[in-house]
Design a protein around this nucleic acid. Sequence first.
DNA 1: GATGAATGAGGGTTCATTCAT
DNA 2: GATGAATGAACCCTCATTCAT
Lengths: 178, 178, 178, 178
Amino acid sequence: MSKPRERILNTTMILFHQQGYNNTGINQIIEDSAVSKASFYQHFKSKDDLCIEFLDKRYAYWISELENFISGAQTVEERFLKSFDFLIFMNEKENFRGCSFLNILSEIPSEKVEIHKVIRSHKKALRDAFNKDLKDDMLSDHIYLLFESCIVTSQLYRSNELIKKTKSIVQGLLLSSC
Amino acid sequence: MSKPRERILNTTMILFHQQGYNNTGINQIIEDSAVSKASFYQHFKSKDDLCIEFLDKRYAYWISELENFISGAQTVEERFLKSFDFLIFMNEKENFRGCSFLNILSEIPSEKVEIHKVIRSHKKALRDAFNKDLKDDMLSDHIYLLFESCIVTSQLYRSNELIKKTKSIVQGLLLSSC
Amino acid sequence: MSKPRERILNTTMILFHQQGYNNTGINQIIEDSAVSKASFYQHFKSKDDLCIEFLDKRYAYWISELENFISGAQTVEERFLKSFDFLIFMNEKENFRGCSFLNILSEIPSEKVEIHKVIRSHKKALRDAFNKDLKDDMLSDHIYLLFESCIVTSQLYRSNELIKKTKSIVQGLLLSSC
Amino acid sequence: MSKPRERILNTTMILFHQQGYNNTGINQIIEDSAVSKASFYQHFKSKDDLCIEFLDKRYAYWISELENFISGAQTVEERFLKSFDFLIFMNEKENFRGCSFLNILSEIPSEKVEIHKVIRSHKKALRDAFNKDLKDDMLSDHIYLLFESCIVTSQLYRSNELIKKTKSIVQGLLLSSC
DNA sequence: GATGAATGAGGGTTCATTCAT
DNA sequence: GATGAATGAACCCTCATTCAT
């Protein structure tokens, strides 16, 4: 069996994403991790602290999965389109739970400045990644916005329909930009 | 002073939107409403029940405010652009709290089917409203997606920057569609 | 059986005095009072809140017991001497637990301003009571100081020896003041 | 840097006196001492054990400071009066935290016999010191009682007022005893 | 001689809900 | 129609201590 800290993080990766932050109690985390309560607090200052580690780890995981998923793409256009396929892939894998960053953003009061900062910085990194791939600033933000929208609306309707539709839209945008 | 039921709803309209569902306790609601606990449960079966009433009332309020805000528009194009101005207006009025429907969607476990259904139906109504104004189905969904994205990202960054950018994008889309 | 609030207070009167504030947990209080935890917090905002009620109630109790004990005294001198007998009486009754106000003063960090204020005000009332009985300000404070000292040292040595000695001293002071 | 054991004791000297026994956790002690937890328990059997060492060290420190402070005195009377000045000096230096022995006495349940014994023995030593300086047993206890009272009441009111008053009283007592 | 990891028990507090009146 | 009292379950967190290395 792995070390407690690792077990806690593994459990948290699942629970925070699937159930949300407020719906996941420390008690469930330690039970699922087979760790004592005091042991948990030896490794994490507070639940908020764990949340930040979660957000960091989630971002690393999500980005690497995305990179991996689109790595076969030959052109920039293909990269973008595959990114949307990735959303479909993740929705099916994770049961349409949407974006952990936006979910937690909705849950956490704005007084928790640290967490908000982390969420923003990760989301900004994603937006920047879109920008890097395209010279046209306007176009990249345009696609980024559609991307975020796809995440949110597919969670909302528990369906990939709008993602597929968006793929056509994006294809059109990229064509007309050449 | 108005009737208890009304007072509860008025309080709830503020608290659920500003603090979220899980961060708002029944105790705060009844205290702010100057209503007894037993009285609360006489009017609402449960907190979930209140949540549904909240969602309905919030939708009615939000749509009517939107309609009112864009009522002066002469053309369809103007209506759309004014809709985005409305988002800016609301962000400033409500301190970038985003969309109550999406916020609660993030907070509530998917087992609470009833609430999810209500959220979906209201959001679908909004999407349909976009569709009604435009013959082009693809275009209206395109704009709808940008609209949702603007709500989410402006909440995230606590800034109207992307909304303004999106207005330009939408303007372009509407022009080229004629 | 009496009402929960009363039961809680009765339990608290015993436990805070006998065990001290920090050594008495909410759990023990509610168990001994046969009251649920949530019920406790319906009646008392916090443990600190309960502490303040305890201090008030303790003062009222202690003063009335004192008044009652010395009520038979014919002269001022007799009143004073009987006050010291009262300390002996209470030590035997309460197993040399000393003064709840001073005990809690020792336990509570000075940041808890409210509690410190209450302690001071009750102790000041006692000092003032000594002053009222004697024109000579210096003498009354002198006796007051010996009184406090008797409480503290009898708790310390778990013995009434010094109280008895002090009675002689006070007798001498009062004689020479005439 | 000094040895772990010494560092722990130095930290404890400050924390137990300033915050009290129950309000000072082992964690704070080892952190402030830059010592590992296991290392702590190698040097001290338990927190109670540390407490006893603290009491011993505190007594040695306090007495030596007192001796030093009053060492310039030419007469017995002066020695006594300077002792009260010492209380004022210490109150200002240590922010009116009173007597560690009495504070801990208030905090510790009487079942902890060992600690109570140590407290008593140190306090008895102080009382004996007063006795040594004066042939008159009654008078020395009288002054000793006023001394204890001054410690307690100055902590209570966070003021040296009563100490100054007591100095006059003691001066009177010593005069009339010659 | 020194350490970081791990713990059982308990700390105080809040939750949404029910019930007797 | 309205209420205050009462609750079981859960909340996040800290305590002094032990153990394997």
